[in-house]
Amino acid sequence: MAPSATLPLPSQPAVQPSNTKHVDPMAAMAHRGKALPGIPEFKLNADKRQWQLEHMAAAFRVFAREGYAEGISGHISVRDPEFEDRFWINPLGVHFGMLKASDMICVNIEGDVVGGNVDGSINAAGFQIHSAVHRARKDVHAICHTHSVHGRAWSAFAKPLDMINQDVCYFYKAHSVYADYGGIANESSEGQRIAESLGDGKAAILMNHGLLTVGETVDEAAFLFCLMERSCKVQLLAHATGLEKQVVSDEEAAYNFKMASTPVQ
């Protein structure tokens, strides 16, 4: 296999428009009102684990509604709150729309099933991708990957998304392109290359494959996946017109990223 051709992931500049004073992102969402609640805190790991699994199941229900289920492909994982070397992942062959918190399987970074639905099987390629990312990124607590339609279509170009609207700025200088399709990722080396391509970003476009997003919570990772899929659709629609695109400036895109691309939003 040829060496991985990964587009570089530039560092995120901490800039904002010169005419805008600093404001707290959460406070800025509500005009003269109470700020929205953030991520809940738990005293017991068991309570946090159950909350994560319930939100993981809810994310799969959203993915099913959005049409992201493609055969037996696609997976979400969430790092266990108590054991850093373990993560929860969906069982192989169960439709996204049917998944419950009790269906999830806990596996350690070496591949041993250590809890949850021990009678279930997990996707081999899914394990290679998720274990590699969890191993490389201690700050990542959830990972989403499916073969969504517009994500696959845009991935064929092996190009990053253009900042052509406010919402796609959630990924401003925070997504990369893995431009070396290596087939179904059953080998650990393919998972490692995908993790390297992701770098310290929030998302990756996997050429000829699909999309991958990460987050501090499963809610963040799942929201970013849905947003990236829609952004790929918008990009394709804009390209189809053949008209010249107006791109958001770096200054404005960086400010949008700073104000909106946070785990609590």
Rank of each mutant, 00 (worst) to 15 (best):
A221Q: 04
L99K: 00
A2T: 09
A30L: 03
S249Q: 15
H209I: 05
E244H: 15
A240Q: 09
A253H: 03
L243W: 11
A30E: 06
E70K: 04
H75P: 03
P160Y: 04
H134I: 10
V218K: 01
E41K: 12
A174G: 06
E82N: 00
A185K: 02
Y68N: 00
M207V: 15
K159R: 10
I122F: 14
A222D: 02
V149T: 14
V107A: 01
V78H: 09
H130N: 07
F127N: 06
F223P: 03
L206T: 09
M163L: 06
L206P: 08
F223R: 12
S18W: 06
E196F: 00
S176Y: 07
V113T: 10
T20C: 08
S155L: 02
V149S: 13
F60P: 02
K159T: 03
M26D: 14
V62I: 15
V78P: 03
V114G: 02
A69F: 05
V264K: 13
R193C: 04
A156Y: 00
A125P: 10
R230L: 14
H22A: 15
H175W: 07
M26N: 14
V247S: 09
V149K: 13
A240I: 05
G67D: 06
M26P: 11
N256V: 13
V248Y: 11
A174D: 12
R32H: 12
D167L: 11
D219G: 14
H209F: 07
I164L: 10
I205A: 05
I105T: 07
V118D: 13
W88Y: 04
M98K: 07
C232S: 13
S261A: 15
L99I: 02
N208V: 10
Q235R: 07
G182C: 02
E54F: 00
G115M: 11
G199F: 08
D24W: 08
Y181N: 04
V78T: 05
T146W: 09
